[in-house]
Nucleic acid binder design. Structure first.
Lengths: 126, 126
DNA sequence: TTTATTTTTGCAACTCAGTCGCAATAAAAC
DNA sequence: GTTTTATTGCGACTGAGTTGCAAAAATAAA
C-alpha cells in the first residue's frame, strides 16, 4: 500500500535514508530511533517504504534484516539488484554497484540471486 | 572440539546426513527428531559436526540456519565453498557444485562469498 | 476551523529460533 | 564394576520480528 500519510515518524526515517549511504540493520535503526518512535512503527514504516520501492531489504551475514535506499525502483518492482558487502573490521554494510554473473545451472531456472560479500573495506585495510 | 562420544543422538544425526543429499533447515531437523532428542541437543551436535568439518552451515533465504554435509573438509577448515539453491515451488534446498566468480572491487579485500540462488528446480519446472 | 473519516502509532503481549546453566545420564576409561 | 568426563534434557531465557487493539494523528469533508 505504501506510504499514505506523512507522519513525523515517516519523515524521520526517510530523512535518515536520504543522508545515509550504505545499508543499515533494523536493530541499529530501532536503537537509533528509540525514544522517537516505537519498534513496531519502524518495522511497519520500512515495510511500506519497501513496497513503495524507496528502500530495499536483504539479510546481512548474521541473518538479520538490513535496509538501504533504492535508486531506480518503482512501487512494486525492485530493479536494482546488487551484491552487498560487509566489512568484518568496522561492521559497515554497503551496496555494491556491480553486475552479478548469474550462473547457468542445468535443469534449473534461476529467478533470484543474493550475493553477500564479507571482507575488509578501504578504510580498514590501510 | 568436535564429536568425542558416539551417542545415540549423534549417530541418528550422522546417519541422517549420510543418506541426505542437499541441505536441510534446523527447524526441519528439530521437527524430524522430536521425540528422539531435545532441540538443544540437535543444535549442539550440529555445532560439533560443523567444527569437525563434517557438515557446513549457511543461512537460507529466510535467514534460518541450514546444514548440509561436507565433501572434502577437515576439522577447522571448510574448503568446499559453493552456492546454495532453493526451489520456490517445492522448497527443497541444495548445494550447487559450481565455482563462484569472486568480484574484484576497488579498495576492498573480499574474504568470503555467500551466494544464495532462488528459482525452480528440475522436478518442479517440468 | 470544526467535525468526521481513515491511517498510523504505541503498547503489551506474543511467536519463534537459538542459547544457556545445571542437574541427571550415558559413554568411555580405568 | 567403578570412576571420570562428555553429553543430554529440561526449563528458562534472549532477541528479532509480528499482531490486535485502543488511542492519537493526519487528511478529507463540511
Amino acid at each position: 500500500m505504501g506510504i499514505v500519510r506523512n507522519t513525523k515518524s515517516v519523515s524521520l526515517v526517510t530523512d535518515f535514508f536520504r543522508q545515509m549511504d550504505g545499508a543499515v540493520g533494523v536493530v541499529e535503526l530501532v536503537e537509533k530511533f528509540k525514544g522517537q518512535m516505537n519498534k513496531s512503527t519502524i518495522y511497519r514504516i520500512l515495510d511500506r517504504l519497501e513496497d513503495e520501492g524507496r528502500v530495499h531489504s536483504f539479510l546481512g551475514g548474521n541473518g538479520l534484516k538490513h535496509y538501504a535506499k533504492c535508486h531506480n525502483c518503482t512501487s512494486g518492482h525492485h530493479s536494482d539488484i546488487h551484491p552487498h558487502f560487509q566489512c568484518t573490521s568496522c561492521g559497515k554494510v554497503e551496496c555494491v554497484s556491480c553486475e552479478i554473473a548469474i550462473p547457468e545451472l542445468p535443469n534449473k531456472r534461476i529467478q533470484q540471486v543474493q550475493l553477500f560479500l564479507t571482507g575488509t573495506c578501504e578504510g580498514c585495510s590501510s
